[in-house]
């Protein structure tokens, strides 16, 4: 046990220990309060206003903004579209990310494993906007995809995947795939060779090994990866805008519009909090599932 805590357990010294701890914590938590917690409270307050506050005009309160889904039914479509995008993205990330993570954990070793791991993590820490932008180079008319297509079929019409639903999904999968690979890799690397050897000695063939051993043991990674992907994706507006153009309308873009174009901050705030509630529900549900599996995240 740390000396400092021991020396200070007698009544005489206790006050200085608490003061010291408080002093150490105040800058960080003070900053977070100012920059995150108070703003969230402010936004909660705003969500109950009738319109954006203008100095001189009295504040009017309403819960209309939370009833927006009823007042403006098109929001249901938008919300559903966001969820669709979230599910597609998460699903594809699972399909690509899990095998990649398993391959990294089990089919490589030593130096090459280290290098491959870095290669996969690297794009993750570069600017997301730049990566989305780079996809436009590939997907647009006259872009790389179009060019490659014409190499094989010169008479085909110009091909552009840009400003379409698939484009949005591709961009999002590209941006969030490393999350899934990382979490699944953490789970996969904990799988001992001896489990698989034991299974094989009992007569299991590869499909059985995968479904009964590898997959269940990677489940915590899959779940936490899915959360890490689904939550930001349903709130994304950058990728849908840039890659989806006019059809790229999601909850994220609608909320962003309220703040930058429509100047209807109360509505934006209410929609944000609705999304936040959904996010918190997802976290609560997933932590229960993860805790049930005896995993500490």
């Amino acid at each position: 046990m740390s000396l400092a805590s021991e020396v200070k357990t007698k009544g005489r010294r206790r006050p200085s220990a608490s003061w010291a701890t408080a002093a150490l914590l105040t800058p960080a938590y003070g900053w977070l309060t100012l920059a995150v917690f108070l703003p969230l409270c402010a936004m909660l307050f705003f969500s109950f206003l009738k319109r954006s506050p203008i100095p001189g005009r009295p504040l009017l309160f309403t819960i209309d903004n939370y009833l927006a889904f009823i007042k403006r039914p098109y929001l249901f479509d938008v919300a559903w579209r966001s969820i669709e995008i979230g599910l597609w993205t998460t699903g594809l990330c699972v399909l690509v990310g899990l095998p990649a993570a398993l391959a990294l954990a089990r089919a490589t070793s030593g130096r090459s494993k280290h290098i491959l791991f870095l290669l996969i993590i690297l794009p993750f820490w570069t600017n997301g906007l730049v990566r989305v932008f780079s996809w436009t180079m590939v997907l647009r008319e006259g872009g790389v995809l179009d060019f490659a297509l014409h190499l094989f079929m010169p008479s085909a019409p110009t091909f552009s995947l840009l400003y379409s639903f698939p484009a949005i999904i591709i961009g999002l999968v590209h941006a969030y795939l490393p999350y899934m690979v990382l979490t699944c890799y953490l789970s996969a690397s904990a799988i001992e060779d001896s489990y698989i050897e034991a299974a094989r000695s009992l007569g299991a063939r590869t499909p059985t090994v995968f479904w009964k051993i590898l997959l269940p043991l990677c489940l915590p990674g899959l779940i936490s990866g899915s959360i890490l992907i689904f939550v930001p994706v349903i709130g994304s507006f950058m990728e849908p805008r840039i890659l989806g153009g006019r059809i790229g309308v999601t909850m994220g873009t609608v909320i962003e519009d309220q703040f930058t174009a429509a100047f209807n901050w109360p509505l934006g705030a209410a929609l944000s909090f609705t999304m936040l509630a959904v996010v918190l529900l997802i976290f609560a549900a997933s932590s229960r599932v993860l805790a049930g599996r005896g995993t500490i995240q």
Binding site: V36, A42, M43, F46, M275
Partner: peptide, 13 residues
């Protein structure tokens, strides 16, 4: 929390 929400909250506050 999605940065969209934190960002707009900061803007408001």
């Amino acid at each position: 929390i999605p940065w969209l929400i934190t960002g707009t909250a900061m803007l408001v506050f």
